[in-house]
């Protein structure tokens, strides 16, 4: 399970990073979203992966570390708010500048194409 989990997180991060480095705002927003998913998965795994364990310490049985789950919840909420904000910001930038390039203008040599 660990390797599957690690590969998933890695692929998500790679895709997120690639999209974040694009020249237009929409791929950048999607990239940031993917990146935050990857980070959430990563955080979740930091307490060690436990299957079939309660998130409470009750006796000597197996239990899952409850702290990463609480952290992930916080991170999800914050990430969600940020995504909403950045979508609105990208739309405002699009309407103010007349195009959706992150720098607000197209490069003439075509370098900044998405």
């Amino acid at each position: 399970m660990e390797s599957l989990y690690a590969i998933t997180t890695g692929v998500l991060t790679a895709c997120g990073l690639y999209l974040t480095l694009r020249g237009r705002t929409f791929p950048v927003v999607v990239g940031l979203t993917l990146l935050s998913y990857a980070v959430n998965l990563f955080l979740f795994s930091m307490g060690g992966l436990t299957t079939d364990g309660a998130a409470i310490l009750d006796g000597p049985g197996t239990y899952a570390d409850p702290l990463p789950q609480a952290l992930v919840l916080t991170a999800i909420v914050i990430g969600f708010a940020m995504t909403a904000f950045v979508v609105i910001l990208a739309m405002r930038a699009r309407s103010e500048a007349g195009n959706d390039h992150v720098d607000g203008r197209k490069r003439e040599d075509g370098e900044g194409r998405a």
């Binding site: 940020m82 910001l89 103010e96």
Partner: peptide
């Protein structure tokens, strides 16, 4: 708005790194 786009995107990426 233009400078905000840069500022926000960079800081969101920074937040991801912070969590990592």
């Amino acid at each position: 708005i233009q400078s905000s786009v840069h500022y926000v995107v960079l800081n969101l990426a920074g937040s991801s790194l912070f969590l990592i």
